[in-house]
């Protein structure tokens, strides 16, 4: 089954450049601003959109994304609203892939079957569920694949050659390589070791490899993009949103524009990478 994610990565491989994958938290800082930003992302150069499902206990995330999640939850974000946001986005964009990223409990609480059906109906293309390891594939991953969604998994510098095949077994869409051992938005990745890691992973799979955790600006996006099929930027984007908020955490007139501006810069970085076009 070909998904929007598969098609997008194939197009970009044929064009000889990496994908810019953006992460924002659904409902941050409020539902309307968040949707306005979501709608503006493709035009600014986001090739794949990761939309965070806020969770009270985001153990893989650094302070920037933790705060974004808290802002969204205080503004009343729920799973139903996150799915409604995707539905609203799909009314005007039929091609940009959307990956919902988050933690398992809000999905489990919503009901796995109901969640998968509603996600597919809303126009979601893939899921990243940080706290579900390959050992729990029967829980959500296998049903998600059966429902036609991609299930994107994270690999880290500590994922060794014994673990990698297990992890790849049911991964689809792309593999998300976490470039550092740590939380989101912490240290900056080193392009040389990222290139080596991507090569090690690509020896084991035909899936595109996107690299994230710690990419903050256009120059880094360019360097990492040269070594991978995609660059994920999350914390920097979420921080750009945070920097525009007033003392009470409310959006100002230029919140969307600030985030969009950073995405444009990042897109320039990613688009300046020239690779030999791969056969799709």
């Amino acid at each position: 089954m070909t998904t929007r994610i598969d098609r997008r990565f194939a197009e970009l491989a044929a064009a000889g450049r990496p994908a810019l994958v953006t992460f924002t938290t659904a409902g941050d800082p409020d539902p309307d601003t968040s949707l306005a930003l979501l709608r503006a992302l493709p035009g600014a150069g986001a090739d794949v959109i990761e939309l965070g499902m806020p969770f009270s206990d985001p153990m893989a995330d650094g302070p920037a994304i933790q705060r974004a999640g808290r802002r969204a939850l205080s503004a009343g974000q729920t799973m139903a609203r996150t799915l409604a946001m995707v539905r609203a986005f799909r009314e005007s964009d039929a091609d940009t892939p959307i990956v919902l990223m988050g933690y398992y409990n809000p999905i489990y609480s919503y009901g796995n079957e109901r969640f998968l059906a509603d996600a597919v109906a809303a126009g979601v293309d893939g899921l990243i569920v940080v706290d579900l390891p390959a050992e729990a594939d029967d829980e959500l991953c296998v049903p998600a694949l059966a429902a036609g969604l991609n299930f994107v998994r994270l690999a880290t510098p500590t994922t060794d050659d014994r673990r990698l095949p297990r992890l790849l077994q049911n991964t689809s869409g792309f593999l998300y390589y976490v470039s550092i051992t740590g939380i989101t938005g912490a240290a900056s990745p080193d392009p040389t070791s990222v290139a080596a890691a991507v090569a090690r992973i690509k020896a084991k799979t035909r899936l595109p490899v996107a690299v994230g955790f710690g990419v903050k600006n256009a120059a880094q996006a360019r360097l990492i993009g040269a070594a991978a099929d995609g660059v994920v930027v999350g914390s920097a984007l979420v921080q750009a949103i945070a920097d525009t908020l007033d003392a009470d955490g409310r959006a100002s007139g230029h919140t969307v524009e600030a985030a969009v501006g950073l995405v444009r810069e990042l897109a320039e970085g990613v688009r300046s990478v020239k690779k030999s076009p791969a056969a799709a």
Partner: peptide, 14 residues
């Protein structure tokens, strides 16, 4: 990493 009885709201927030 474990499934157990949890204090949580209707939306699965802890």
């Amino acid at each position: 990493g474990n499934r157990t009885y949890l204090l949580q709201d209707d939306d699965g927030q802890i």
